[in-house]
């Protein structure tokens, strides 16, 4: 029997890591740092984060180098509340990495909405390492939601880093998609990468379609197994865990549920708004 499958190894059980450092990124966001390497991780992929005896959820890696990696978690619902109580020295389980990744390209435009900056941060580092040109549009509800801004401003030229907030507390007072359209008037990028609330990404997708620009977006759905068996994280006939989370515009063209609906834990299909309300609990 073939032992090789898309996961490299048939065995997929949590690998245990001890938290060696916690960084407070904002009043509600913590980055948990672990010593070790996540084998063959590519920006855009996700891992399953297990709190023993409690639950396991998908998260992105927000920082990675040769020796350590970090996972940033915002306190929002039951699981992330539990995660926010984790202390240095606590042991958690990680499986993965799973899913698809971004295609690194020169002359790109990155759109980050809120927590969407997290999977994009390793991409930013990757593009920098490749000496690729790119512009970052980062938005959030308010100043508090603009994460990693000090660090990113050291990496990018001022004209390549544009910030906006819904309330105008930092940067321009507008949505990221308004800035995206402005940027496109000046220069046409080879690709747009976007991660954020799905309403934002749906708009990014529309704008890219109108301007005939390739785009890659990272979708989020309620996940159970994480590797394509249970079917829970469906978006149309695609599995966000296996075929995604990063989808390009060609795939999205055939995903009618994108921007519209998702499935709750019991399998009921609901409009996106109802899904987001559910996820906050």
């Amino acid at each position: 029997m073939e032992k090789k499958n898309g996961f490299g190894f048939a065995r997929q059980v949590p690998v245990m890591y001890s938290i060696f450092k916690i960084n407070k990124e904002s009043p509600t966001c913590n980055t948990f740092f672990f010593k070790g390497r996540i084998r063959s991780f590519k920006p855009g992929q996700f891992i399953m984060f297990w709190i023993p005896g409690h639950d396991e959820k998908p998260f992105t890696i927000s920082y990675i180098d040769e020796e350590i990696f970090g996972i940033t978690i915002e306190k929002r619902g039951k699981f992330t509340e539990k995660a926010s109580n984790l202390k240095e020295g606590d042991v958690v389980g990680i499986r993965g990495p799973y899913g698809t990744s971004f295609t690194p390209m020169d002359n790109s435009l990155i759109v980050a909405g809120g927590l969407g900056i997290m999977p994009l941060r390793p991409l930013i580092y990757q593009l920098r390492r490749n000496n690729y040109d790119f512009t970052l549009v980062q938005g959030a509800r308010n100043e508090e939601g603009i994460l990693f801004t000090k660090e990113i401003s050291l990496l990018l030229k001022q004209e390549n880093y544009i910030i906006c907030t819904d309330d105008g507390s930092l940067g321009e007072r507008c949505f990221t998609t308004v800035l995206l359209e402005k940027c496109l008037q000046k220069r046409k990028p080879s690709i747009v990468y976007a991660v954020g609330p799905e309403v934002m990404m749906a708009k990014v997708y529309e704008i890219c379609k109108m301007n005939n620009i390739r785009c890659e977006l990272s979708l989020e759905r309620y996940m159970k197994c994480g590797f394509g068996l249970c079917g829970q994280c469906a978006c149309e006939d695609k599995l966000v865990c296996l075929d995604g989370p990063v989808f390009n515009n060609n795939s999205l063209d055939n995903m009618k549920e994108f921007g519209r609906s998702a499935y709750l834990k019991d399998g009921r299909k609901v409009p996106l708004k109802e899904y987001y309300d559910y996820r906050e609990k």
């Binding site: 065995r11 297990w50 409690h54 396991e56 197994c225 249970c230 019991d266």
Partner: peptide
């Protein structure tokens, strides 16, 4: 249904 993990694959 149950919380995660829900599936543990081995060889």
């Amino acid at each position: 249904g149950h919380n995660n993990p829900v599936i543990l694959p081995y060889e």
